[in-house]
């Protein structure tokens, strides 16, 4: 599909990701976190919102093992999952 020819006026310009490429997890260091995340997706009918804790844990595993540049979790979109921030406060 990505190799389909695009006739006419449509154009698509791929953009590099904001923070570059993930290093490869050659030794499967975060594989167990990925499996937990995938199991959650299957159990929750692939709704991303219900598995954000597992994706946060996977990214934290990568940061801890130098497989991702360290970044505050708020800047990765997990502000509402941070402890000490009740939901009502975020909605103010």
């Amino acid at each position: 599909m990505s190799t389909a020819m695009n006739f006419g006026t449509k154009s698509f310009q791929p953009r590099p990701p904001d923070k570059g490429s993930f290093p490869l997890d050659h030794f499967g260091e975060c594989k167990s976190f990925k499996e937990k995340f995938m199991r959650c997706l299957r159990d929750k009918n692939y709704e991303n919102a219900l598995c954000r804790n597992e994706s946060k844990e996977y990214l934290m595993c990568r940061m801890q093992r130098q497989l991702m540049a360290p970044e505050p979790l708020e800047k990765l979109g997990f502000r509402d999952l941070m402890e000490g921030k009740p939901e009502a406060k975020d909605e103010c």
Binding site: R15, D18, F22, L24, H26, K31
Partner: peptide, 23 residues
């Protein structure tokens, strides 16, 4: 995309299998 595996060379050793996340 915040981070993925595109636009950079990814080296896979013989018989190696890796997970490639897209965030």
């Amino acid at each position: 995309k915040i981070q993925c595996f595109c636009f950079e060379e990814q080296r896979l050793n013989p018989q190696e299998e890796v997970d490639m996340p897209v965030f």
